[in-house]
Design a protein around this nucleic acid. Structure first.
Length: 372
DNA sequence: AACGCGGGGGT
DNA sequence: ACCCCAGCGTT
């Protein structure tokens, strides 16, 4: 069903002018949303008070900039369904937009409503997820689809609390759907928004990794009562395109003259020792390899790699027995062989596959591959 | 608050 | 090599 969507301002081709683009049809009543922010946020460590005048000026600049610089992303189309927006938000969790685009198109073509996704074999879902990463998101999204189909009449909930109750939907995603799909006021706080607000108002290059309740309150008070959708989308877009984590393009920033971080001389954060990112040789890499190989083998020949053979793979991997392995169909053999190359003694592979099985890999039977 | 969780592109 | 990305769930 087609939900009314808010107007995402499209790149308006001309003139720097029209700041105010009023929102289009939204949910009529807005009873549960936050009360309009009057007062400036309560002070918290590193989060300065912001005068109403300055807040309003920054809001105006961001919204105006967004009206002229928004990327024409398909989920910003007026006729994009709430479901399509939820899918895009989940796919975008920790994954750059450019990588999401092709998978999102394919998903929406195949599964245009939650019920469609809920009815699909899990193996199809994982294969369509492809290499977006964090494949558990795909499984949670399918669980969410089933919940929406079964308990919400196949319509994405309008209520932020009900959105939050869905698997794989956290504070960010619930707020994003509330704002972008339904045009209701919400505090959309992703890594981009946090960075932009932190620089402009708090004069720090990067916010701390963890998001505190105090920062949420602070950010909430900065969301305007009007044009909040454009503010949410605009701060995100500004963070993605201009106020980037590294090498921000301050020369093109509409907030150049309003930015506390720039005014302070763009100080760098005190260097924090970051743990070297381990990847090669880790369980994580190995598990990713198992995923990829099984996915590929199943996609190439689903009959050869049904779920019960995945269970058999466990035995073969554990036994480290070439003869036993030879008993399995070729695509599966290839998959196991490829994984083995990463784990010469086989112990870790065996344990990981065993974990996969225990967590339900084998239990799903005809639903296809079930991985963590 | 701190972890663990994929994978690819940019610098 | 390392950093970063429209985060979430668990401990």
């Amino acid at each position: 069903m087609t939900h009314r969507r808010t107007t995402q301002v499209t790149p308006a081709s001309e003139g720097p002018g029209h700041t105010t683009r009023t929102s289009s049809p939204r949910d009529s009543a807005d009873p549960s949303s936050l009360s309009a922010p009057r007062a400036v946020p309560s002070a918290a460590p590193g989060l300065p008070q912001v005068s109403e005048g300055r807040s309003a000026e920054v809001q105006r600049l961001v919204i105006d900039w967004f009206s002229r610089n928004a990327r024409p992303l398909p989920w910003r189309d007026r006729d994009a369904s709430a479901w399509s927006i939820l899918v895009c938000e989940v796919m975008s969790q920790q994954t750059p937009v450019a990588r999401v685009l092709p998978r999102w198109r394919e998903w929406m073509r195949r599964w245009p409503t939650p019920a469609d996704l809920a009815a699909a074999p899990a193996s199809d879902v994982l294969i369509a997820w492809d290499s977006l990463g964090y494949p558990r998101r795909a499984l949670r999204l399918q669980e969410t689809a089933a919940a929406i189909a079964d308990r919400h009449g196949n319509e994405v909930p309008h209520d932020e609390d009900r959105l939050l109750a869905l698997p794989g939907v956290g504070a960010y995603t619930a707020a994003a759907v509330t704002s972008f799909a339904y045009g209701r006021r919400a505090v959309v706080l992703d890594v981009n928004v946090r960075r932009v607000l932190g620089r402009v108002f708090a004069a720090v290059e990067h916010r701390p990794a963890s998001l505190t309740a105090a920062e949420k309150r602070w950010a909430r008070a900065l969301v305007p009562a009007q044009d909040h959708v454009e503010w949410n989308a605009g701060t995100m877009e500004l963070g993605a395109l201009v106020c980037t984590a590294r090498n921000p393009d301050c020369a093109r920033c509409p907030l150049l003259d309003a930015c506390a971080w720039v005014a302070a001389g763009k100080p760098s954060d005190p260097t924090v020792v970051r743990r070297a990112q381990a990847w090669a040789g880790t369980d994580r890499q190995l598990r990713g390899a198992i995923m990829r190989t099984l996915r590929t083998a199943h996609a190439e020949d689903a009959a050869a790699v049904p779920t019960h053979l995945l269970t058999a793979a466990t035995a073969a991997l554990t036994a480290d027995d070439a003869e036993a392995l030879a008993a399995y169909p070729s695509p599966l053999r290839t998959a196991i062989g490829a994984v083995r190359d990463l784990d010469a003694d086989g112990a870790r592979t065996a344990r990981l596959v065993d974990d996969l099985v225990r967590d339900g890999l084998a239990a799903r039977d005809d639903r296809g591959i079930r991985l963590p």
